[in-house]
Design a protein around this nucleic acid. Sequence first.
DNA 1: CGGCGTACAGTACACCGTACAGTAGCGTCG
DNA 2: CGACGCTACTGTACGGTGTACTGTACGCCG
Lengths: 219, 219
Amino acid sequence: MSDKRTRAPRNTLNPELIVTTALGLMKTEGVEAFSLRALAKELGVGPMALYTYFRGKDELIDAVRDHLFSTRKLSSAQGPWQQQLRSVATGLRELLLEHPCLLRILASRPLKGPETAAATETVVRALREAGFSKENAARAHTSLFTFVLGAALWESQMNAEKQDPEGRRRLRATMAAVSEVDYPTVVDLAGELAATSGGDAQFEFGLTALIMGLEPFAG
Amino acid sequence: MSDKRTRAPRNTLNPELIVTTALGLMKTEGVEAFSLRALAKELGVGPMALYTYFRGKDELIDAVRDHLFSTRKLSSAQGPWQQQLRSVATGLRELLLEHPCLLRILASRPLKGPETAAATETVVRALREAGFSKENAARAHTSLFTFVLGAALWESQMNAEKQDPEGRRRLRATMAAVSEVDYPTVVDLAGELAATSGGDAQFEFGLTALIMGLEPFAG
DNA sequence: CGGCGTACAGTACACCGTACAGTAGCGTCG
DNA sequence: CGACGCTACTGTACGGTGTACTGTACGCCG
């Protein structure tokens, strides 16, 4: 098109389109590589056009986070309280692993909005109905949430590291660098430690332990 | 440091000085604000001077991480295995909370080096001596580590948010935005949830639960 | 004392987020 | 139907980033 006298029509941009495009870009390029300029180019507009809908990059990223939380219902749980906790925790982990960028977002900024209120409600209500005191219910909820966050964060990083050959080489080098004299048990368990750095079974193990440890607090 | 005057550096620049200065800058300005140019200015040199000691920013940050891990001994634990796990976990949490930048570093890149081998050795040996199978010992270790990571990450973010008045306002606004009709339990526990978002007691609660949940796996 | 390797300085480039000012398409109204 | 104003967009610019490449002078060794 040699003549580009017309600029982009006025209607082509809206918050939802921006957010979903941003999300796509984050998935393909990685969160750290994501930039407003790249997003604008992808949308066929100038970088400043985005400022009509978001005050800046931070607000856009918050919107992406909220969007991701809104895509999955984490609160449909039933059965005994242990099973409800499992269900919510598993759902949250799946969401986080499916969208590593969400993990990075959560790790870099506090969770401001009430996006997770539904999940929190499910967990906390189950705990209260199981006889947990108010305080213990709150503590148990926070423990569960932070456990899932940490586990997913670690798992995601390990997955990323295992993907490219360079990362695999580095992992192997790390393992080889551990002195057998100083750390015999670590060396002995090297295989197990590497194997359990991620995966459903690892998560299930920790989740089960945590929930079992919560049981004495039920009334 | 009488290192035998082998070859005195041309000026007062060396890796250790760079790393500690970088760490100081991260603590005062925040990790995200940290830049090579600011570090160079602080050291009174040009930005490029740093490249004679580190290949780039990433390598420097890795060095900061390694330095931080080397400053604290996490492995001096004794007593029953539960207590040893508590000791290592508590030490790690303290280290992470004392240096929020370390938390951000861990959250943004995989743990490559064997810096934590000593802590891992302590945990894994205690578990093995308690009768854990190889696989379960590895799983328990990973669960413990990721729990501490997630808890410290969350706690650190909440602390940061609570520090400036703007953050406190946002937290209160978030709580107020939760619908009492949809999420009655959350609203009922609002005070407890806010109070338990961090602090030693919250961490102890989760840690105790996790370790108790691990006990059935002891032989 | 002369030469040389290297620890620094300087410049430059591509990219970033975003402040500010200008312009043109669209809805609205006379 | 024509004109106007709002506002969604564009363009330009500024100060910042990491870092590649090139230049320079210091301090050690022969």
